[in-house]
Write a protein that binds this DNA or RNA. Structure first.
Lengths: 345, 345
DNA sequence: CTGAAAGCGCTTACAG
DNA sequence: CTGAAAGCGCTTACAG
């Protein structure tokens, strides 16, 4: 790595490394370096295509211009999209992104946190798992949470969506479409975002004087595989033939739901209405297409990075914790139209 | 970052930092440090939870234990899956991954390469764009190419799939299923992988004495958006009503193809057969499901990282370039069954 | 207006 | 068997 260093520039300009460092860091004025010298240094640096060695700078200043991004699963389209926006935006500010997937596994998340910490990332964007609050609190660097947060920790920054509103909107839409006996398929996860979706579901039913008893709520262990989900949902449908619509609390549950409904010969929309939380390519393309409440992925990514950068750049200490709660958008499609008969493709 | 350093350990153990460094780097034997001292140091390091400062180490040794991963688009399911495997495997060897998406844009790719270079990554996994050969050759660090390579550069390492075989298999399957007039939808890209897919298509037709004239080949500019692709494919279908099957050279073309075929009222399979290169969740779930030739994503990711680590660890100089060409798997589904009438969902 | 010097936390030739 | 010292490429108090 014989890159060209500050010394090389100093030598060619006939000044000391100190002076070069001042000028290159935009402190020429402040340090009262002469215009003449400043220009000479800048010109030489440009000619030599000088790039500061981030390692050396990091060792000295403690800043690595790197941020750690911890998602649940980079292969999941939602997180992959967020990661892309985060990477793009971070780049604009000169930051690079180190990433990892937790698989929603506490131990894996802790390991990731530890590695990122001793890699001295300047800040973190984290999709927390359960029980990760202590480790996060101990981080000593700016953190922005995404997708979910810890209700009991008041001073954390986060960018999330309004899960309650999303679920409420989705279920109200089903009611307005004429469905009367609506069930929810969700997970057993105790995480806040799942809790809020369930609350939104129950609240919407109550508001419309529809039954919200235990039978309409189906919670599945979140560590089942695809086949397991399909089997459970299929069984639930067979045991609750009076249901005329389903709300799926995540897109992967919705996808499994499509297969379950198909497997018992029901027609989505006509026989059983359906809305899913979170959009997916499959929902748009499926026939019939699937109604959903969609997360504003682009905006989530942008807000995350801007919030983190703000913390990093003017670390005016103890800035008030930032909470951004974004709304979901109802995308009406064919799966929530009870009357229309769907033409096959 | 007042992490604990080698000095702290040295002090507590009553030895010099040098000795600590030797022991911690497993050179105790070699440097003939006494068993007694070694054990003491290791014990203290464990107690203090010592983590070496990678920045300092990197500055000194030139190794950052970081690899750069450049993909075409991290939000694309294929690349997202590969990225996940790469990150997982790299972690096992103590490496972290810095990533970026090129969008298949030369300038963006060059920028990414430059940033990664001055971040001193130890090695690269690159999905190259066109004309990136010179920049890659100038890298001075181990590189493994993925998805595509430069046929004119003999000494590069790469992990790719057998595009020719995949296309050949896909088209032969259509022929065996009884389709007689088969078209291909591909891009205008001059990149090797697209070229090979086209070659496989043409070769399969010739081998079966089917027409391979210009009319059956439709090349679309690869920078169109979704709507553009759909419009172009729809128009092509309308102008070539004698086609009874289509081979799509990428999964996103296949997805647009589904919409195009639907928009003109044709039924996939019965009216027009279809096979796509590369699998996608949508293909499995669509009704009718879509036949494809699938890439071995897991294996691609594993091979990439193992090839790169091998280069990094025993840099026995001038090792022969490694080329891995993996086969694709034909996944037969409903879209290539001409006779059966598909029941709608 | 500019520079010599210390130091970030390591590794490694060199010396004893 | 162990340690003092130099150096990786920066930044920054301090001095003049």
């Amino acid at each position: 790595m014989k890159g060209i260093s500050i010394k090389d520039i100093a030598q060619e300009a006939g000044v000391s490394p100190t002076t070069v460092s001042f000028v290159l860091n935009g402190k020429g004025k402040e340090k009262r370096i002469s215009e003449q010298v400043s220009k000479r240094i800048l010109k030489i640096a440009g000619k030599l295509k000088y790039k500061p060695n981030q390692l050396a700078r990091g060792l000295r200043t403690g800043k690595t211009k790197t941020i750690g991004l911890i998602v649940e699963d980079i292969a999941n389209i939602f997180f992959a999209n967020v990661a892309k926006v985060v990477e793009d935006e971070a780049d604009k500010f000169g930051y690079k992104v180190l990433f990892g997937s937790t698989e929603d596994n506490e131990e894996k998340a802790k390991g990731l946190l530890e590695v990122l910490r001793y890699r001295q990332v300047d800040g973190y964007i984290i999709t927390p798992t359960l029980n990760l609050d202590k480790e996060i609190a101990a981080l000593q660097k700016p953190v922005v949470l995404m997708d979910r947060y810890f209700p009991n920790i008041a001073d954390s920054n986060y960018v999330v969506v309004d899960n309650f509103q999303g679920a409420y909107t989705a279920v109200s839409h089903l009611v307005e479409q004429g469905y009367k006996k609506i069930g929810i398929i969700t997970t057993t996860s105790a995480q806040i975002q799942m809790q809020q979706r369930l609350d939104g579901f129950v609240d919407a039913l109550k508001k419309h004087d529809l039954p919200a008893d235990k039978n309409v709520i189906k919670r599945l262990p979140f560590d089942l595989d695809r086949a397991g989900f399909i089997q459970e949902i299929t069984q639930y449908l067979q045991q609750n033939k009076d249901l005329d619509a389903l709300f799926f609390a995540t897109n992967y549950l919705g996808i499994c739901g499509i297969e379950s409904i198909r497997s018992i010969g029901l027609h989505i929309g006509t026989d059983i209405g359906m809305v899913s939380f979170d959009d997916h390519d499959i929902f748009r393309l499926h026939s019939p297409s699937i109604t959903c409440v969609a997360q504003p992925v682009e905006e989530i990514g942008r807000r995350l990075i801007h919030m983190l950068i703000a913390e990093l750049e003017h670390s005016t200490e103890a800035s008030a914790p930032q909470h951004v709660v974004l709304s979901l958008e109802l995308r009406k499609r064919e799966s929530s139209i009870p009357a229309v008969h769907h033409v096959n493709v």
